[in-house]
């Protein structure tokens, strides 16, 4: 199960490891760590968002362990993708393996393709795909779009993103 964990750390060195070590001790597979230094909490702590995969049964014990270790746990939830944009692809989308194109984004762990619709006017004709690209934060969204653009370029697909 993919989990998004919001924690708050003291602004002194060595804090992040307090959170990361238990996650890996419980067999969690860490996907992204978003250290939001510019968004201190009123009490001066630094919010950190960690996205990781873990067996569901181990989650409760992990959260206990974190709390014991002086990590403020603000929120535990299924990964939440906060930023999104609409993207349109034009080209031979299906023939160039749309699964692989989408996977290039989904496999990042910080972004995914949702609500996809396809239009295929005819075998020889270019098709179009419209979807929402979602990511955990603005910067990640931009990264995901860049990844998508790069793979689309190789496949001769035009990427049109929303403003």
């Amino acid at each position: 199960m993919k989990i998004s964990l919001d924690i708050e750390l003291k602004d002194i060195p060595g804090q992040l490891i307090l959170a990361l070590k238990p996650i890996s001790d419980f067999g969690g597979n860490i996907k992204t760590v978003l250290h939001q230094r510019d968004k201190k909490t009123p009490s001066g702590r630094i919010p950190v968002q960690i996205v990781f995969e873990i067996e569901e049964s181990k989650l409760a014990r992990l959260v206990e362990r974190l709390k014991e270790g002086d990590v403020n746990v603000a929120r535990v939830g299924k990964e939440r993708l906060k930023e999104s944009m609409v993207v349109l692809l034009i080209g031979h989308i299906v023939h160039t393996d749309i699964g692989d194109t989408i996977n290039s984004v989904d496999s990042t762990g910080f972004a995914e393709v949702v609500e996809l619709s396809l239009s295929m006017p005819g075998i020889e004709k270019k098709s179009s795909a419209l979807f929402t690209l979602s990511a955990i934060a603005k910067e990640e969204l931009k990264k995901a779009l860049d990844i998508l653009k790069e793979i689309a370029k190789k496949k001769g697909i035009l990427v049109i993103s929303s403003i």
């Binding site: 349109l88 034009i90 080209g91 098709s127 179009s128 049109i160």
Partner: peptide
């Protein structure tokens, strides 16, 4: 490379 199908799809969204 923009097709009328793509424009229609965008329009619906």
């Amino acid at each position: 490379d923009i097709t009328s199908e793509a424009l229609e799809m965008a329009d619906e969204a």
